[in-house]
Design a protein around this nucleic acid. Structure first.
Lengths: 132, 132
DNA sequence: CTAACATGGTTGACAGCTCAAGTATAGACG
DNA sequence: CGTCTATACTTGAGCTGTCAACCATGTTAG
C-alpha cells in the first residue's frame, strides 16, 4: 500500500510519500513553520533524514529555512507560497487515492477503531516551541 | 516501532526485521522451502529485493538454493539446519520484544480486531506450488 | 566564569530497497 | 516446428534513509 500510494504521488506530482507528509505538517502548522527536530519526530524520520528530505524541497523552492530569534541552534522549515500551492494541488489527488485504496474497505466506525488502536503505539513525544 | 524492533533484532542476532521475516516464512513452510517469488510476495519485497536479501542469508549459511525438478526457471530457498537453529534462537527474543512493545498495549480482543481490520488491506495474491 | 552536559543540526559512509533491463525457461498457438 | 508472450530470477544504477561523528549553541552547577 505504501509503495502504491508513493508511486501514484510520485507519478502525479513528483513527490515522495514522505515529502507529502512533511508538506502536510507544515501546511497545518502555525505560520506554516516547524522546527526540523519536531518535523523529524512527527514524520518518523531521523534528524539527518529530515535534513536530506528538506534539501530536496528547498531546491524545488517549496520550503525555506528560517532561523529562530531566541535560540541560534534551531532552524525552522517554512512552507513558501509555491510550496503551499504545490501541496494544495497534490492533496486532492492523494486524498482520493487514500480513499480508494484504504477508506473504501472500512466503515466510519471501523476507521475510528483503527485510529484509536493504532494511536496507542509508542512514539517519541513532541517538544517545546519557540517564538520565531 | 519497526526501527526499534529491527534494531533489537540486529543487536541481538545480527538479523534485519526482513531477514527474520523470511526465516519465519521458511521455517513454517512445507519442507522449509519456498519459491523466491512467493517469498517476495509474502514479505512484501520485490523480486530483486529477495535476491539480495537471500544473498546475505546464503552467505551466512542459513539458507540454500534448490532447483525445481519440473520447472527450470524456479529456484527454491531452503532453510538449512543452521538456519533453523538460528531462527529458533532468534524467535524467543523477538516474540518477547513484540509482546513488550506491541502486545502489552492491547487486550486479546483488541488484537483480534486489529488483525481482522488490517487483514482487509490489499495485498498481491499468492501463486501455485511445484513439487520439488 | 567555567566545565560538563544536553540539544539542534549537518555531513560522510554505507545499507537496503527499487526500477529498468537483461537472461533463461515455459507454455500457447499458428 | 517456430514464434510470441509470460514468468522466474539476476544485475547495474540510483535513491532514500540510517548511523556515527562532528560542530555550534544553550543550560546547569560548582
Amino acid at each position: 500500500m505504501t509503495r502504491e500510494l508513493s508511486a501514484r504521488l510520485e507519478g502525479a506530482h513528483g513527490l515522495t510519500l514522505n515529502d507529502y507528509d512533511v508538506l502536510v505538517q507544515l501546511y497545518y502548522a502555525p505560520e506554516r513553520s516547524l522546527r526540523r527536530v519536531d518535523l523529524a519526530r512527527t514524520v518518523l524520520l531521523t534528524a539527518s533524514g529530515i535534513t536530506r528530505l528538506l534539501d530536496g524541497l528547498e531546491r524545488a523552492g517549496w520550503v525555506e529555512k528560517r532561523s529562530c530569534a531566541t535560540d541560534a541552534r534551531v532552524t525552522y522549515a517554512h512552507l513558501t507560497d509555491a510550496g503551499t500551492a504545490k501541496f494544495e494541488t497534490a492533496q486532492a489527488g492523494h486524498l482520493a487515492d487514500v480513499e480508494e485504496l484504504f477508506g473504501s474497505r472500512f466503515t466510519p466506525e471501523e476507521r475510528e477503531q483503527l485510529a484509536e488502536l493504532l494511536g496507542r503505539l509508542p512514539l517519541a513525544e513532541t517538544s517545546e516551541a519557540c517564538s520565531a
